[in-house]
Design a protein around this nucleic acid. Structure first.
Lengths: 152, 152
DNA sequence: CTCATTGCAAATGGTTTGCATTGGG
DNA sequence: CCCAATGCAAACCATTTGCAATGAG
């Protein structure tokens, strides 16, 4: 218990996301507005392809460009599933890690001060200057284990 | 200190790698022999493209197929660099994590019983059944920080 | 003789880019 | 008016696949 926070934290609103882009010097165009608005409905991790399908009015390249801007701004995270395919999620926290369900690919977010502390400790034993880390926990989520799957 | 082992452990020899493939029911063909032999000279993490360039006598598809067999057999690991590009390394240990130098992309290996213990503890606080994890530590390795780089 | 393995080239998935066009500030 | 931003299609990178040819047991 404690030390692990996996409760959903408040997510930035579309307006806030747009403001973040403006802070980085990018214009709040209609296309960018459309992309960040759509993000509001994305809860579990999505692909860029999904975005482009729902945003027929925005060119694929623009969607990718906007996703990249948001990635650079730190408001989106790219998560690599166990099989290597990429998904994106809207970040709720500054620094965090991801959980990925190996059955349904749902991506979650958690942070643990214990992990951070341990990593700092470990750092002392690893040659070089540590500048960051990444961690994913693979699991079978509750709704997947609740579902008795007769076909597996 | 202690608890973190980052010293190079003995690596499987080409003959051992080939034997592992045979154990999995795959024939020790000349192409596979060539691939595993080349692995012996690979210390810091390599791309499949590098392998194909040095193995002009082996078809690209065969190199990829062999890499996949070795990946499945657990003797190769795929590591995703900070920028998303994939590299491969020959695994020295059963379960371990990777360090990646953000300057030179050199991939290292380490394991830490502390990390494993902490992850088990955290598991109790995360909903679902944990089936695995992945972790990368990004750093600036010693030779990169030793090198004063006038061009950065 | 047969089936695993190979090589080629084409297809794939995810993403980026060149370039001419558009549209806010 | 100008430059940031866009859309399109082509390029790109890592990887996979279909299929006919090969080759080892």
């Amino acid at each position: 218990m404690a030390n692990v926070k996996s409760e959903p934290a408040p997510r930035p609103s579309p307006a806030e996301l747009l403001a973040i882009l403006e802070d980085h010097g990018y214009r709040p165009t209609n296309q960018r507005r459309d992309v960040v608005s759509l993000l509001e409905s994305k809860e579990v991790g999505f692909t860029v392809e999904e975005l482009t399908e729902e945003l027929i009015e925005v060119g694929r390249a623009t969607v990718y460009r906007t996703v990249k801007l948001l990635l650079d701004a730190g408001v989106l995270c790219k998560v690599t599933l166990a099989d290597g395919t990429p998904k994106y999620i809207v970040a709720r926290r500054e620094h965090h890690h991801h959980t990925v369900c190996v059955r349904c690919d749902t991506v979650g977010e958690f942070r643990s001060s214990t992990v951070e502390r341990v990593l700092r400790t470990i750092g002392a034993d690893i040659p070089g200057t540590i500048v960051g880390h990444r961690m994913e926990i693979f699991l079978i989520c509750e709704s997947c284990s609740d579902t008795i799957n007769y076909f597996r």
